[in-house]
Design a protein around this nucleic acid. Structure first.
Lengths: 192, 192
DNA sequence: ATAAAACTATACCGACCGGTATGTTCAGAC
DNA sequence: GTCTGAACATACCGGTCGGTATAGTTTTAT
């Protein structure tokens, strides 16, 4: 089944792409390094030459995922001019993602559930990812002239997380819409 | 390290107790059946005589966890008389849980992250658990004379989930308090 | 007292785990 | 033209995985 095509990408990229897909789809512990190397059409020795260990590959996978997410979101936000509709766009972006066929929830939340060791280097990336979302929300809230951007951002963040998690478990986007409603209802009373 | 004491409980109960603790603490895939049997001071043959397979043990573990949770919550709610303070008590119960040393988030959410096969029998229990919380909230909202108990319950549920998840990842109860605030602020405007 | 039921001990199964070692092939740089 | 480095193929390591088989021992209910 669909491997990454060998010619147009380096071994490093192919490994990351295969790991990203398999880890997200099947779970981190459920996928072995042999499978990843095979899917990337690469030898196990090459995998270890690039990433040193499975933990290293896990960490780099999350780092790459974070970078990709950040890029995708900014591209999505660029389509909207005023900060208020950009706030809405964040919910819209998650909603669009949530109805995809291969959607299996937030990869960082899932990873956190599996990596129970709190000292695992990947934990820092997970925290950084969630913090980045929170911060972007605060940024937009401030740009939208919210009187208390930090509070508003935190509220939006909690609703975003609750909506996403519930949409994941129920396998329907409705909870995200509901959370979006609640979030927008918070805004007018707080705007000057 | 602390095993379940052998004398005062049956092999079945000891197995469930050991599985419950290890699965929650280390993750489901991270724990092997050998470890569980050893911790329960029981032979692997006995484990398979009782549960048939690891999947069976996982399923029964979640079933038992759901039952225990339901029992604990009702005991907690019994300490409060009026439905409004019972609604608050749900957040209080989760908060008390979230500051425990061995807290590692909602066991059902974590299990859902690991059990990627949507046909796994444990998925039904996870869904049932979340539905039970949603329903209990609706029950209490109705008893508290909310005009639209279903809507209110859904809103409280989303906040509860978002608060719990964020409290888990940040390793602090503050997000739960914030979500609780938001939830209570929803009530007065909706009450008749 | 006895027989079924529950549990123990031990050994085994093939498969896979993460990780390593040895040696080869081959393209680009000097 | 040779040297370097990256990827190759293959085989191996000890350990653990989930699961089973055989046999003996304890408990428990009749």
């Amino acid at each position: 089944m669909d491997r990454v095509d060998k010619q147009k990408s380096s071994a490093h990229d192919r490994l990351l792409a295969a790991a990203s897909r398999l880890f997200y789809e099947k779970g981190i512990r459920a996928v072995g390094v042999n499978t990843i190397a095979a899917q990337a059409q690469v030898t196990k020795a090459t995998l270890y030459a690039h990433f040193g260990s499975k933990d290293g590959l896990i960490t780099e996978h999350l780092r790459a995922r974070e970078q990709r997410w950040r890029c995708d979101l900014e591209r999505f936000l660029a389509g909207h001019r005023d900060p208020a509709s950009q706030l809405d766009a964040i919910f819209a972006a998650y909603r669009a993602w949530a109805i995809a066929d291969d959607f299996r929830g937030c990869g960082f939340v899932n990873a956190a559930a599996e990596l129970t060791d709190p000292t695992h280097p990947a934990r820092a990336i997970i925290n950084a990812h969630k913090h980045a979302i929170r911060f972007r929300l605060e940024d937009l809230a401030a740009a939208a002239d919210c009187p208390q951007p930090s509070d508003t951002a935190e509220q939006w963040f909690l609703l975003l997380e609750g909506g996403m998690l519930t949409a994941t478990l129920r396998r329907e986007p409705a909870p995200l819409d509901r959370a979006h409603e609640m979030a927008t209802r918070l805004l007018p009373t707080q705007r000057v």
